[in-house]
Nucleic acid binder design. Structure first.
Lengths: 346, 346
DNA sequence: CTGGCGCATGTTGACGTCAACATGCTACGG
DNA sequence: CCGTAGCATGTTGACGTCAACATGCGCCAG
C-alpha cells in the first residue's frame, strides 16, 4: 500500500525548516534571510545576528534543490569513469575530489561498471538527468568514439587520459615523454634493445606509451622486438614475464604500468633470472608501493595530483567563465631505483 | 521582460527546454509530459509516442533540481571519506558506486583531505547543503567521536569500518575473525609466537585487528611480543620490518595490511632473511597485487564488494522504508600463498 | 434511456530560493 | 529647507516539476 493510514508522518521524508520559517522566527523578510545565507554584506550587523540565531535555533539548512532550480547552478562536477581499480584512475579521482572541494564543488560519481559501449551510452544518458554543471570523463577513447549517444550539447566537458575528438579540452599525462624516458634510460645503460609489456590494445594511454617506446628504439637504431600485450594487471604481467624470462636475449623490459612490472618481477624471480643483474625492469606510474617492490622499482612518475587539479581547473573555468581550454600535457619524471642496471658482459 | 540588455545571452548558462516546451510541441499539457517522463502507464500509446518524439526533437532533459524540489528526493547518496589512497577505501568506494548505481542512486563524494577534527566538522557541515538522501561515512571512529558538529538529525546514515556510537547502523568486515585466522595459521604452522605490525593508533580497524591478534595469542598460550605501530604504508612496514629482521627470535609476522606486509617483505630481503624459510609473513586485505609479491603473499581476504553492497542496501532501505538496520559483519577468508611455512628446525 | 464508472487528459498551486524592483529612512549639499 | 544619494529591508514573481483535483468522453448495467 502507499498511504492509507491518516496518522502517518510525512512519508518518512524530512522537510526541514525553510527560509520562510527562519524569517518568521527572526522577524525579517525571506529575502533578508537569503542575503544572510549567501553572505551578502548589505545587511545590518544586528539583523544578521538575529537571523543567524534563528537559523541555529531552527536547524535551518538551505535547500540546494531550490537554490539550483533558481540559479541554474548545481555546484557539482560529474565524473564518469570505469572501475576505480586501476591505481592511476584512483589517484586521479582523489586529486579531482580535492581540487573540486577547494573550488567549492562537490563530486558526483557516475561509474561505468562494465566497459562496453552499451554501458557507456547508458552512463552518458544517465548523465542527462544528473545535477551537474560539467563533466570530467575518464574512459578509454575508443568507447567514446564509437558511442552514438551525444553528450548534452551545452554541457562543459573535460577529457582526461584520452583523446578529445577535437571537441573537448583534454588534460593528460605526457605519455610519450614518459615512455621515452624509460626506454632511453635502459638504452643508456647499455642494453641492446628494450622489450615492452604493453597495456590493452584499445587503451589510449597504452597505445601512446607503446608508440613512443617504439619510436625511441628506432631513433636509437635499436631493434624493435615484438610487443607483448597485457591488461594492466599484475597477473598479466606475470604471464607475459614468464615468456620473456625464457628468452636469454631479453635483458631489459619496460612495462606500461607498475602493476604489470610487479608481475614481471615475480616471473623473473620464479625463473631464476636476477633483477637487475640479468634483466632490468622499468614500470610506469610510480605507485606508492613501487619503492617496496623487490627490488625497488625504477619507474616513470606520474603527477596524478596535477592532472586532477588541472582538469578541475579547466572545467570550472569553462563553467564559470564560459571559455574553453585546449589540451594540457602534464610532464613525467624518471625515478631510478634498483630494478635497473647495465647488462652483464658475457 | 527581465533582462535589461536585449543582446545578452542567457549569462553563459544553459537553460534547456522545459516540460512546457515539450508540451507545446506535442500539443498536450505539461502534466502529460510529466507522466510520460516518469513512465506512468495511464497515457494513450499514440499520445506517448507524440510526446517522446517532441522530447527527442527538442533534446529535452528533465531538470533534476526541480524534480528534487518538488519530490523532496535527490536520488543521491553521499559518501564521506578520507583520502582514497588506501586500497581498502578505494575498493569499498568502488563497490558502493556500483551498488548505488544499481539501486538507481548516484554518488556524491565528500572528501576529507586532511583527517583532522576540524576538517571532519567542515565536511559534515558541508553535508548540510549537499543534495543527498543519505550518507555513508568511512572515517576513523575517534574523529567522529570528538566531533561536536551534529549530523543533520533526520538524515539516514550508515557507518562503514568504524564504530556506530549506538546511533547508526554499521557495516564492517569482521576484523577480529580475520586477525584470528591469520594468527592461528601462523601458530598452526608451528611458530612459537607471532609478531604484529599494526595500523595507526587511532584507527578502529587497526585496533580491532591488534586486539584479536593479541587475544588469539593468549588463547593459545603464546607469548605476546611488543606491537610495532605503522601507518598502513609500505614505507612504514619497511622501517618496522628492518627492526624485526634484526631479531633472530622473529619467525612469524602478521602485518595489519598488505601494503605494510610488502614493506616487511622488502626489509627481510634486504636483511638477507629468507621468506618463508626463516620468516613467515601474513598480510590483510588481499590486494589484487598480493599474489604477485615476492614471494606471493599469504593474506586475509576482505570482501570489499560485499561491504559496499551491504552498506548501500542498508542506507537505501532506511531512505525508502524508513527502517534502520543494525550492525552487519562481513566475513573474511584466509588465502594461503607462499610467504608462510613452518619454522626451520634449529 | 440514463446514471455512473473508468480512463485519458487538463488545470492549479506549491515546493524553497533569489533576482529585480520597490519602499522608506538617514544624511548631506546647495 | 528641500532634493537626492545611499543604504537596509521588503514585495513580487518565476525557476521546472508533479500531486491533487477537475473535466470530459465512451461504455455498460439497470
Amino acid at each position: 500500500m502507499t498511504t492509507t493510514n491518516p496518522t502517518e508522518a510525512p512519508a518518512g521524508r524530512r522537510r526541514g525548516p525553510s527560509m520562510a520559517d527562519v524569517a518568521r522566527e527572526a522577524n525579517v523578510s525571506g529575502q533578508t534571510v537569503s542575503r544572510v545565507s549567501n553572505g551578502r554584506t548589505n545587511v545590518d550587523a544586528e539583523t544578521r545576528e538575529r537571523v543567524l540565531a534563528a537559523m541555529r535555533k531552527l536547524g535551518y539548512r538551505p535547500n540546494s534543490a531550490a537554490r539550483a532550480l533558481r540559479t541554474g547552478r548545481f555546484h557539482s562536477i560529474g565524473v564518469i569513469m570505469f572501475t576505480l581499480s586501476t591505481y592511476g584512475n584512483m589517484r586521479t579521482l582523489d586529486a579531482i575530489a580535492v581540487a573540486a572541494t577547494d573550488a567549492g564543488y562537490s563530486l558526483t560519481l557516475i561509474p561505468v561498471p562494465h566497459p562496453t559501449q552499451g554501458e557507456v551510452s547508458v552512463a552518458l544518458h544517465r548523465l542527462s538527468e544528473e545535477a551537474v554543471d560539467g563533466v570530467i570523463i575518464i574512459v578509454e577513447a575508443h568507447l567514446l568514439d564509437e558511442t552514438d549517444v551525444e553528450l548534452p550539447p551545452d554541457l562543459p566537458v573535460v577529457i582526461v587520459d584520452s583523446r578529445g575528438r577535437d571537441r573537448y579540452p583534454v588534460v593528460d599525462t605526457d605519455q610519450a615523454h614518459g615512455a621515452r624516458l624509460a626506454t632511453e634510460h635502459l638504452l643508456g645503460l647499455g642494453h641492446r634493445t628494450v622489450w615492452h609489456v604493453a597495456g590493452p590494445e584499445r587503451s589510449y594511454s597504452a597505445e601512446r606509451r607503446r608508440e613512443s617506446w617504439e619510436s625511441t628504439l628506432r631513433a636509437h637504431g635499436a631493434e624493435v622486438p615484438p610487443v607483448l600485450v597485457g591488461d594492466w594487471s599484475s597477473e598479466s604481467g606475470h604471464a607475459l614475464g614468464l615468456e620473456l624470462a625464457r628468452d636469454p636475449e631479453v635483458t631489459a623490459v619496460f612495462a606500461a604500468n607498475d602493476q604489470m612490472a610487479l608481475g614481471v618481477l615475480r616471473a623473473m624471480h620464479e625463473s631464476g633470472r636476477a633483477v637487475p643483474d640479468e634483466v632490468s625492469v622499468v614500470g610506469f606510474d610510480d605507485m606508492a608501493e613501487s619503492a617496496s617492490f623487490w627490488p625497488p622499482l625504477t619507474t616513470v612518475h606520474q603527477f596524478f595530483g596535477e592532472v586532477g587539479r588541472l582538469s578541475v581547473e579547466a572545467l570550472v573555468h569553462e563553467v564559470e567563465a564560459g571559455e574553453r581550454r585546449g589540451t594540457t600535457l602534464v610532464s613525467t619524471e624518471l625515478v631510478v631505483r634498483e630494478s635497473t642496471a647495465a647488462p652483464r658482459r658475457d
